[in-house]
Simulated assay, not measured.
Amino acid sequence: MFAKVLILGMLLSTKVFAISSLELAQNIIANPNLEAKLKLLFEGRDYTDENGYANLSEISRILKTNSLLSLTLASSQSLELSFKSKASNILFLKIVNDALNQAGFVYFTPIQLDLSTDISTYKLRVESRYILDPGSFYMILKQNFVFIENVRKTGAYSYEYSLDFSRAKLSTNTNVMLNQSTKLGRPLKDYIIDLKGANTISLKASPADTWFPKIIFVDKDLKLIENLESQEKNNNFSSSIPSNAVYAIVGDSYNLDNIRRGLEIYLSK
């Protein structure tokens, strides 16, 4: 009985503190003159995704459809984006930077980075004619099980994102199964491999390539466990996997063109 009451209390507490679709829309627009229209569109309506978070893709679509959110500027402006989360520092920066790149923001300047407290803060400036679409960003982050709790417009061209990293998991660029050989195509970036609890890893380059193996084992928070780099050609590589390693980052010590024909990988358990 006590357990049921406790669970109910937790659910009610979550409901009390969760931001509503209307509040989120108000925070994104930050214009008191549009309050009536926002209430008409969002008040009493629930736009929640399958994970219990606000479906920013749908909220953003409604705002754009009703001409409340314009993401294209007349001229290039200096935009400021701030991200806050309780997260592992390396994973936080990796996922946010990769998500921004995927959203089309490749060149930006970090202007604040505070990783010294429980809440990590990362602020950057970017020159652009386009504002980051919260709906698209939401969809990209979901690939890594990172969720947007809130978005606040803090200035004419400034936005602050509060992110939930409690279930974060790095999205890999490979699909490798245990106990079967997998051919990896030509890499544009280092391969990121989910080790799936394997005990050993074997990698083979094409005889026509010249590979200088670089294999980095990291844990779930991307903290370094072991770094193996070779300065000599070795087209066949095998190693045991450290017990707490979750991912392997595989590349070449000098240039990915050295493995332009890809690699063959085998994870065994």
Rank of each mutant, 00 (worst) to 15 (best):
N144D: 00
R186L: 06
E149L: 13
S166P: 03
T121G: 00
S230G: 10
I225R: 05
G52S: 08
L115I: 13
K37V: 07
L222G: 02
Y157I: 02
Q112W: 06
L71Q: 03
Q26R: 09
Q143M: 13
I19D: 07
Q102K: 08
I90N: 00
V218L: 12
S202V: 08
G262M: 00
S82Y: 03
Y254C: 12
L11M: 14
K94G: 10
G52W: 08
A168S: 12
S171D: 03
I29Y: 12
Y247N: 11
G9V: 10
S238D: 03
S21C: 02
I111F: 10
L124Y: 09
S85T: 04
S238Q: 11
I241C: 05
S88F: 11
F145R: 06
F212N: 14
Y157C: 12
A248M: 13
T65G: 00
P187L: 04
S76Q: 01
M1A: 14
A248H: 01
L163G: 03
A248P: 00
T210V: 14
I265S: 07
K64Y: 06
E43R: 14
A198D: 14
R45V: 05
E80I: 11
P110V: 10
S202N: 03
P32Q: 10
S128K: 05
P134A: 08
L38R: 07
Y107D: 06
T121P: 05
R260K: 14
N173Q: 06
P242I: 08
L163Q: 06
L56T: 01
D118E: 14
L73F: 15
I7S: 00
G44F: 07
L79S: 09
I148N: 13
K142R: 14
R186K: 05
Q77S: 11
F147P: 11
N173G: 04
N234T: 12
L163R: 04
L12F: 08
S116K: 09
N27L: 11
I140S: 07
I249H: 07
S171H: 03
E160T: 00
K233E: 14
N173C: 04
K169C: 12
N66G: 02
A54D: 04
L263G: 01
L41H: 02
L69D: 00
N89D: 15
P242Y: 00
Y159L: 02
D190C: 04
N236D: 15
N179H: 13
L68K: 06
E35D: 08
L69S: 03
L79W: 05
A245H: 02
S243D: 15
S75V: 07
D98F: 06
N244Y: 10
K204A: 04
A156P: 07
E80N: 14
T117I: 10
A25T: 00
E127F: 13
S166N: 09
K183Q: 15
Q77I: 11
E232S: 14
A99F: 10
S120T: 14
L170Q: 12
